[in-house]
Design a protein around this nucleic acid. Structure first.
Lengths: 194, 194, 194, 194
DNA sequence: TATGAATGAGTATTCATTCAT
DNA sequence: AATGAATGAATACTCATTCAT
């Protein structure tokens, strides 16, 4: 019997290596061989777990999107009113990306690749869901009937945009302190519950 | 010097063709031959005006950044108080990108490539200048000494981020109406002058 | 020695599986893994019985050539005169290949590989022996001293060629009825004993 | 303007080089690089004229089949009765292959590849046409109403088979004198006109 | 014996760039 | 200036074979 292997664990190791390499050189300049070396194995072994180089990038995106969805689900269980929940979301997302800097850097490649291949990764759906979740929270806040100055869906678009746009700036320029930006975003874009 | 004029015009045609091709397939999947064909000339001729494929992407970015800088300069000459100037900036940027959709799509590739090669295109500097200009406007507004709830530079980061983040969402999903998002951004993030 | 018997049986199973796979996809497009799966075992196990992929093809050829030699030997024991013996040979060969269609299809690969590697499989010797056996039969018929219109060895070459050439056509086109071709070959190429 | 090139001539040179290389090592063991070197050019240049390695093999077959068809057409214009025409066909085919030994050696690869990929090269159709042409000649001979001992189509199959089968033996064993075999084949398989 | 995970040599193909005309 | 034929470096992926268990 051959060496017993935990396929999922092995897959995870390779993916983690790939994320590190993608973060370092960018997807376009990352060679399968680099990834294999980073994972401490031979080129061919990568293909036992991933069907192609592109498959690795997709898996990286899947990981991110899964985490995001978990985060959004967690927000629903967060104590406090909707303002507090939105604040929690903003802080959590930025904290997550600050922590997982490599994953965040890969975002740039995922964005670029995802925009061209809707069949490959449904970026549109991902952001639609994201906006919808935020809009639902914003809307809940207005149950009292007060008319907000900005419609919830547009407000959600701007809030989501501000998060992503701050991440973008941080990726280009590490002197931008991402974690610290949570408070300005909350202050400016999360309406206080009356 | 008619030769000189010709040369610039030819360069412009090629760059425009490149932008169309990049927008369609993405930089990674755009071949020099595609660009030459789109520009109605032979492959080799492209090299008489651009030194490499990457040079075309850089030129596309240069075009964008020049336009942005012009826009920012224009903002300074815009009549009205700082709130109106900021509103004008937001509207102008979004209108520009809505109009130049191809250029906007190339942004994804520029971001991705720019993040890896600081020497190639100084994305950090570009956004630093962008933020600085916005922060200056925000700061001007507070000359009276009132303490704003969010420091100007952070506020600028969030405002710039919101713009870029809304563009991002629009690029993935054309059902997001970019031009229309100007008002929510203005309402939410441009402080009204007292 | 039951172990020994087991071993031979196992080898036979694998070889049979290989022949089926080779017949289906051709040697060039047959993977060791396909053969192992067809034989109901793991890839590595194949190597316990055959030293390489090529070894399987050689073994397939060996099987065919052994059968052919048996057939030729049997012809010597066949009752009747030489005409009848030759007729029996033609019919037997064509019947054998009709029955073992998979083996026949592998012939194409064996021919192709065999022509390049004399050391690997001695195709030249095989056909030399084949022709010699047929020529001997043809010659025997002429013991009376009558001069035949075609020398025995050349006649044998044409007869063997006709058999192989009919097989070839049948392999390309199943609508060619191989078994039925035995009679035309016999009529045209096996001289009647006077 | 770039160097002027006769595309057809260049294609021909490369194909000729490919045939030499295929003849030497067999298709399976021929590298594109070997072919390029044999043709005195760089690897990439081969792809300016042929879309793939397989395309080269197909082109080799196309060349052969075109020549064969020309030969068959020529037979129709050959003076003499049908016996003489058939004899001419047999002699011409064997002379052609004797002359073009490299092309003949590639036959083995073409047979092997062609049998697996009907869409790629229609071997069945090629031999059907071949048989039909020969059968037509055999049939013409019987216009007087005499019943032949073997039906024309089967006779044609055997005659075509004998030719191919002799070629096969010659390919394995150069001591088989192919050109010389024309007479035995004619004597044995081409019915004399009464 | 049997297994199947791991290996890494091997190669077809692509395409940016060059340069002779 | 313009062309497009030629180049050859670069690389994803395959798969026969090995070997630890």
């Amino acid at each position: 019997m051959p060496r017993q292997v935990d396929r999922e664990a092995r897959r995870g190791e390779i993916l983690a290596a790939a994320v590190r390499v993608f973060a370092r050189h960018g997807y376009a300049d990352s060679r399968i061989e680099d990834i294999a070396r980073e994972a401490g194995m031979a080129k061919g072994s990568v293909y036992l777990y991933f069907s192609s180089r592109e498959d690795l990038l997709r898996a990286a995106f899947d990981g991110m999107s899964t985490r995001s969805e978990e985060l959004i689900a967690e927000v629903g269980r967060h104590p406090g009113d909707t303002s507090e929940r939105l604040a929690f979301l903003v802080r959590s997302v930025l904290a997550l990306l600050t922590r997982e800097r490599d994953l965040a850097r890969v975002l740039l490649d995922v964005w670029s690749a995802g925009a061209r291949k809707p069949a490959w990764v449904d970026m549109a759906a991902f952001y639609q869901d994201y906006r919808a979740a935020v809009a639902a929270l914003l809307d809940a806040r207005d149950e009292d009937g007060t008319e907000p100055s900005v419609a919830p869906y547009e407000h959600a678009t701007v809030l989501v945009g501000a998060i992503e746009g701050c991440v973008l700036q941080w990726l280009f320029d590490p002197s931008v302190d991402l974690a610290t930006l949570a408070e300005p975003i909350v202050t400016l874009l999360v309406p206080r519950t009356r």
